[in-house]
Simulated assay, not measured.
Amino acid sequence: MDTIIISPSKYIQGNGALDNIGKYVSVFGQRPLAIADDFVMGLTRERVAASSEQENLKIGFDIFGGECSRVEIERLIDVCRTQENDVIIGIGGGKTLDTAKSVAYYSKIPVVIVPTIASTDAPTSALAVIYTPEGEFSEYLMFPSNPNMVIMDTGIIAAAPVRTLVAGMGDAMSTYFEARANGLSGKATMAGGVPTRAAQALAKLCYETLIADGEKAKVAVENGVVTKAVENIIEANTYLSGIGFESSGLAAAHAIHNGLTKLEECHHLLHGEKVAFGTLTQLVLENAPQSEIDEVLNFCRTVGLPTNLHEMGVKALNHDKLREVAKASCAEGETIHNMPFPVTADSVYAAILTAHQLGL
């Protein structure tokens, strides 16, 4: 199997980076279409329009309908065709960004991704999650290439709810441990091959950055300011974790996250909050050293990530439901089978209970 690494063509990060978007987008086309939901459009439109005007771009704006569905994607494809747009800009959260990726793919035009939060590592990936118009999961859409450009305005991201940055840390925290497991098993990653040393190094750097700067970054954004620690954590949550997960592999932590969606009590949690507990469960599953588990537990408690099922909203343990979670985590095709040893629903159930107890 070949070694493969994939990534966006260009990653840009800085406080006020949005004010330079016209210059950055102009290399791809002269008639961009920017999509964002109502709130984000109000937050960013004036700055995007001013920057585009400086570069003499004929920019169009369209309000994203709120769901990354086939219906919304087709609507925006028609808009691009009618307005003869030659590049699409997605500004906002995950569903807006996935819609922009999808419209660009089908319209055969470049895409520029502008996240307004750093809650997951999805912005850099060659993947979109498609939902029905009613909001139910429909399918994954895999793209042949990653976004042409990702722009992270750290000033905007630091002004978002603190919880979103912390959730991003929870998602990023799993990157190194899943990459390590996937590397030992030798299974193919989402990039279609085995990990490069570069991707594995980025995954490790991601974890090291979280431990070094996570608490400092949280304190800074709680006070509405951007520090070097904030810059480092935004890069870890987005770029280091994004390249790390896609080109180094997923394993048990994300599969356990998917299993936890079976618990209604956890539906209010953000993606990274569930992944954090999935990471603890993976460490128990592989019998990681207690010192490593303690470091992860301490980090979670310091930044405010859940370390047990009670903190995730599960007031009383229902063992039948927990067995359903374990079974769903081990479904055919789940990434838990990238672990370097056979995994069963029974072993996951045992690891969930143990991780919960250790995290109390």
Results as ranks from 00 to 15, higher is better:
Ser138Cys: 07
Ala255Ile: 13
Phe143Ile: 04
Pro133Tyr: 14
Ala188Asp: 07
Ala181Tyr: 03
Tyr239Glu: 02
Asp62Ile: 11
Val87Gly: 02
Leu358Lys: 09
Glu139Ala: 14
Met142His: 12
Asn56Lys: 15
Leu43Asp: 00
Asn318Gln: 08
Asn258Glu: 11
Thr164Asn: 02
Ile6Glu: 11
Leu270Tyr: 15
Ile73Val: 14
Glu55Ser: 04
Ala229Met: 10
Gly333Pro: 03
Gly168Asp: 02
Ala122Met: 10
Val348Gln: 05
Glu235Phe: 05
Ser51Thr: 06
Arg75Gly: 00
Ala34Pro: 00
Val230Trp: 10
Ala203Ser: 14
Asn85Trp: 00
Ile211Asp: 05
Leu360Cys: 12
Asn15Met: 10
Thr116Ser: 02
Gly193Phe: 14
Cys206Asn: 11
Ala158Asn: 03
Met173Ser: 09
Thr227Ser: 08
Asp62Met: 13
Glu178Met: 07
Leu297His: 07
Gln83Arg: 15
Phe341Cys: 03
Leu317Val: 15
Ser185Glu: 08
Asn338Thr: 05
Val40Gly: 00
Gln290Thr: 15
Ile352Phe: 09
Pro144Gln: 13
Leu270Gly: 01
Lys216Leu: 15
Asp62Lys: 14
Val111Ala: 01
Gln290Met: 14
Thr3Gln: 13
Thr132Val: 07
Ala188Arg: 09
Gly214Cys: 05
Arg75Asn: 02
Ser125Leu: 09
Asp320His: 02
Thr209Asn: 00
Val296Pro: 02
Asn237Val: 10
Leu260Ala: 04
Glu53Tyr: 11
His319Asp: 09
Ser138Ala: 10
Ala345Trp: 11
Ala179Thr: 12
Gln200Glu: 12
Gln282Cys: 07
Ala252Trp: 12
Ile211Lys: 03
Val194Arg: 05
Ala326Gln: 04
Val221Ile: 11
Arg180Ile: 01
Leu322Asp: 06
Cys68Val: 13
Ala160Arg: 14
Leu57Asp: 01
Thr209Trp: 02
Ala118Thr: 10
Ile6Ala: 08
Val150Thr: 06
Tyr140Met: 06
Thr238Ala: 03
Phe277Ser: 06
Tyr131Val: 03
His257Ala: 01
Tyr24Asn: 01
Gly22His: 06
Ala252Phe: 05
Glu67Lys: 13
His271Glu: 11
Asp98Lys: 01
Met41Thr: 10
His356Thr: 09
Asp346Gln: 14
Asp346Ile: 11
Gln282Asp: 07
Thr154His: 00
Ala201Gly: 10
Ser145Leu: 08
Ile59Glu: 00
Phe143Glu: 01
Glu67Asn: 06
Met173Tyr: 07
Leu360His: 13
Val48Cys: 09
Leu165His: 05
Asn20Val: 03
